[in-house]
Write a protein that binds this DNA or RNA. Structure first.
Lengths: 236, 236
DNA sequence: CTATAGTATTAGGTGAGGCTAACTTAGGGC
DNA sequence: GCCCTAAGTTAGCCTCACCTAATACTATAG
């Protein structure tokens, strides 16, 4: 049925998806930088991915000098790869005692090579999780993600409490810093105050308060469900 | 220090090692057949592997029209890959519920891509095993295997009992057949009789006797240690 | 001892996926 | 409105790892 793509092609599609999610606009440079490849090579690959070689549609739309965007088909492939990667991360983290950076690198490298069957068994073994250890959603087998319940922390009203469901995992140093504050998925967090000058929130976690840049708070998600149960629960 | 070889190159070295172990002599055809590749391509790869590109020595010795053999260096690489593969097989089998053929295929595919660190963690997690589930030895991190204690079943004296430590795993059908007799590593086995015509042994396993072709018995290993404690122990 | 079958090698070609160098285009400063 | 810089693209080249077709070698039957 479908001529499975090469590891390289899949990796490009994954990179496009991630850049798209994080910045909204996908440039050749951003891809080249992220993948450690020269822009010229990226251009060449984009040309290939934009072609409809088998009558089943292309993987990306390309407007020369403007940018790239995934088609539905390309998105499905990227989501599939991301699913492999996130499940692998969880699996390795759960089974072996590895740091997040290590499981991340390992999973990223192995993701293109694991079979659908292995993926399914890992998923079952883990109880079919829908988020990885940082709350990043794991796409379903159909290549869909559900983030309907995700709300940025900086939209939480002052004085209200909510449960953290996701922290940004792109920057290991930031991730470590947030973890050092106890700011990890599952934690309850309260917005104590908003500083009128500069975009800074004061948040309470485990009875300690911390200043948090609004830019960071915007990349942290809280559960929509918990919003209405604010002040209802306490963490230990 | 060392320019790590491509996945393909490693796979060739693995194939050479396995053919060498099983048949004693490595032909281009045998490699081509095993790897699903045309002989011409094998010749080309052998030429590359036989070259000393970095002054550190070549990976194989090649006598044109005669055969190929691994050098110490090539053997080390092949053993390393085999170690990855066998540890992965055990790991996947122990953690997920997969058939042997499935874990075998998966591990074979993934072996070139796992890091030394992951390998080490898997090994530790499994208690640093020295044999895979069929008794095939797992090379050490130094690329060595210890089969000093392995003795072919067909050398066991009639009437004596010994513990099976290894069964041939090349042929899945044979493996299944042996398993159906209870002939798996760890089982105690007794040679009841030798048929004078044809090369056939009669063996007892779990109080049932079975005829066994000598050719097969030669590929089954028993522990040297147990030879002297024959008749001492009983299974279940 | 030679013919021949079968195996191995070489020659030459292809596609994937990188590279550099040279070019085009878009967009901001003046 | 022009020009210059930065970004994107194209052209042309390379290596890897496969292929087919043609050639060379080996070993065996007669």
């Amino acid at each position: 049925m479908q001529e499975s793509l090469s590891a390289s092609e899949q990796e490009y599609l994954r990179a496009i998806l991630l850049v798209q999610q994080r910045t909204g606009h996908v440039t050749v440079q951003a891809l080249a930088g992220r993948m450690g490849i020269k822009p010229a090579s990226v251009s060449a690959m984009i040309r290939r991915l934009a072609q409809d070689e088998d009558g089943q549609g292309s993987y990306v739309m390309h407007t020369p000098y403007q940018g790239v965007a995934l088609t539905r088909r390309g998105e499905r492939v990227a989501m599939e790869l991301l699913r492999h990667q996130r499940l692998l991360e969880l699996f390795l983290a759960a089974t072996l005692d590895m740091s997040w950076e290590q499981v991340h690198d390992e999973a990223e490298r192995l993701a293109p090579f694991i079979s659908e069957d292995l993926e399914e068994r890992i998923s079952a073994r883990l109880g079919h999780p829908t988020r990885d250890q940082h709350g990043d959603p794991i796409p379903s087998r159909e290549g869909l993600i559900n983030i309907a319940d995700d709300i940025p922390l900086n939209t939480l009203e002052t004085g209200m409490q909510a449960k953290v469901v996701r922290v940004p995992d792109e920057d290991p140093a930031l991730l470590r810093y947030l973890a050092s504050l106890g700011l990890i998925p599952g934690t309850w967090i309260t917005v104590e105050a908003r500083n009128p000058y500069g975009d800074i929130l004061t948040v309470r976690i485990d009875n300690a308060t911390h200043p948090l840049a609004g830019e960071i708070a915007g990349r942290i998600s809280i559960s929509a469900a918990s919003r209405h149960s604010a002040q209802a629960s306490h963490s230990n």
